[in-house]
Each structure stands twice: as C-alpha cells, then as structure tokens.
C-alpha cells in the first residue's frame, strides 16, 4: 500500500510536468488548429533563459521564471508572426511542416551557440526539502510543480471563460471569419494566444530545469511529444482536458514502470492511449459533435 501511494505521488508529479507543457500546446491548437511541434523547444528556450537569469544575473527562481515567461511570450509572438502567420490560410499540414522546421531550427541554433552538452541547473536556486510521511517520501518540488500546474490551469481557464480576450479567443477558434466580422482583431488574438502559450511553456521549462537539474538543447523533444499526446488524450483544444491528459499520462507511465515492465513503458503508454482514442475518438473531454454534411 505504501508503495502504491508512493507511485501515486510519483505519477502525479510527473503528470504535472506533462500537464504544464500540454496546457500551452492545447491552447494554441484550440485557437488555430496548429500542432505546434516547436512548443517543446520553446520550453527549452525558456529553461535556458531561466538558467542564465539565475547564473548570470543571480536572480531567484521566481524572477527567473517571470523573465523566462516574458522572454518566451515575446519570442512566441515573433515565431508566430514570421513562421506561422503567412501560412494561416494554407493547409494545416503545411503549417505542421513549418512547425517541424521551427523546432529543428530552435534546437540546432541553440546547439550552435551553446553546444549540445547539458547544463546543470544550479540546485541552490531551489533548495530541496524532503518530507517522509509513513514511508512515503514527498519533496517540496513535487508539491511546487503540482500546485503550479493546477493554478496555471485555473488562471488559463479563467482567462478563456471570463475575460474579453478569452471571449475573442473562443470566437476566433469557433469561426475565424465571423470573428472578423464581429470586429475582433484575429491577428491580435492569435498573438496573445501565442504569447500566453509560450509563456506557459517557459514556465514549464524552468520547472523542468528545477525538477531534473539539467537542461540541454534537445530536452524539449520527448516531453513535447508526450505532452502533445497528453493534450490529444484529454481532447485537444480543451484546457481541463490537457490537465487531466497530462496526469493520466504521468500515472500511466508510472504504473507501467512500477507494476509492469519498465522496458515496455512507452509502448504500453502509447497502447493505452490508442485504446482510449478508439473508445472515445475525440479524447476524454472532447465532445463528439458529429460532422455536418
């Protein structure tokens, strides 16, 4: 039983990280239906900004995170302007290829400038405290990541449901042309979406840095992929869905490693994912609207 609870803690912490990345993914997707494969790499850029902010300017972790979020928000807007906007009216797959291009570009320009070797995130930035309760070990960073994911999700949900910007976002997502006719600036709305999405990725990046102590230029690929899977799992474009998808993904991987065979972790995780999709093709939270003829 103790082991099970420990695995639950492990799974929720890992899931929180996936959820954090998935939030930004799903948000961008929800508005412009673009699978932004560069999202994981924006996370990597955020992690590096956080890293340099701590090591070069000696800021604390919160300032580093804010700086990374600010930097990536601007960065995300630029990426959208340069690489995605010209393709807004083309096929979605063309935009997908551009996203792959942007992803490769970010990875290799970082390697070119900083080298491919990992950088060690200063552990002094976030002192670790261990809590051992009845044989279960919980670290303050687990709690930190978990709470951040939940809080950010709530804020995001609030923005989208209750603010004017959020309404504009939903309008653009629902029908871009109608939104224009209603006097909504689509360009501005999409820019804001990218700003928020990229800022979330940056926050996730800094957290991954804190959590795992190392960052490297290719760190975004695998978590990015898994977060994308999590977003699809929850029903892509749905904010709480991304959150739940992230946690499901984290728990799934943990349970496979913990009670099954760790060698087949990724295979089983993907297998379960496919099963869920087959039973519920639009994801856990997706509404099956049916197609109009």
């Amino acid at each position: 039983m103790i082991e099970f609870i420990q695995q639950l803690v492990n799974g929720l912490s890992l899931g929180a990280i996936y959820a954090l990345i998935a939030l930004g993914y799903t948000m961008v997707y929800g508005i412009i239906k673009l699978i932004n494969f560069a999202h994981g790499d924006v996370m990597m850029v955020g992690a590096y900004v956080g890293f340099f902010s701590i090591t070069l300017f000696g800021t604390n972790i919160l300032a580093a995170m804010l700086l990374a979020m600010l930097f990536c928000a601007i960065f995300g807007v630029i990426i959208e302007k340069v690489a995605y906007r010209p393709l807004r009216n083309s096929t979605r797959i063309a935009a997908l290829i551009t996203a792959i291009g942007v992803s490769l570009f970010l990875e290799y320009i970082t390697i070119f400038i900083l080298g491919p070797a990992q950088k060690v995130f200063p552990s002094s930035a976030f002192p670790i405290t261990e809590y051992h309760i009845a044989g279960i070990s919980i670290l303050n960073k687990n709690i930190f990541v978990f709470i951040s994911a939940v809080v950010l999700m709530l804020i995001l949900q609030y923005i989208i449901k209750w603010t004017k910007t959020g309404k504009a976002m939903r309008a653009v997502s629902l029908d871009m042309e109608a939104a224009v006719l209603m006097g909504i600036s689509v360009d501005k709305t999409i820019s804001i979406t990218f700003a928020i999405g990229s800022a979330l990725a940056a926050a996730a990046g800094v957290m991954v840095g804190v959590y795992y102590n190392t960052i490297n230029p290719l760190m975004g690929i695998i978590p990015g992929l898994k977060a994308f899977v999590a977003a699809v799992l929850g029903g892509i474009g749905i904010i709480p869905g991304a959150m739940v998808g992230g946690f499901v993904m984290g728990l799934l991987e943990t349970m496979v490693s913990g009670y099954g065979n760790s060698l087949y972790r990724d295979a089983v995780a993907f297998g379960v994912l496919i099963l869920i999709l087959l039973i519920k093709p639009t994801g856990l939270f997706g509404k099956n609207t049916g197609e109009k003829v």
Partner: peptide, 28 residues
C-alpha cells in the same frame, strides 16, 4: 483497421504511437 476510424490529428497521434510501439518492441 482500428485506427483509420480516427480522424485528423487523432489519427496522426495514433499512427505516431504505433510507430513508437514498433520501435520499443524491437528494442526489447
């Protein structure tokens, strides 16, 4: 047969998943 019922990005992720499953299985 099972996955082609899915549409768009859901199909994409399912095929991606199968590709990865094949790789992991071969690895083991």
């Amino acid at each position: 047969v099972p996955t082609l019922r899915l549409k768009g990005d859901y199909l994409a992720i399912a095929t991606l998943g199968f590709g990865e499953i094949i790789r992991v299985v071969l690895q083991n």
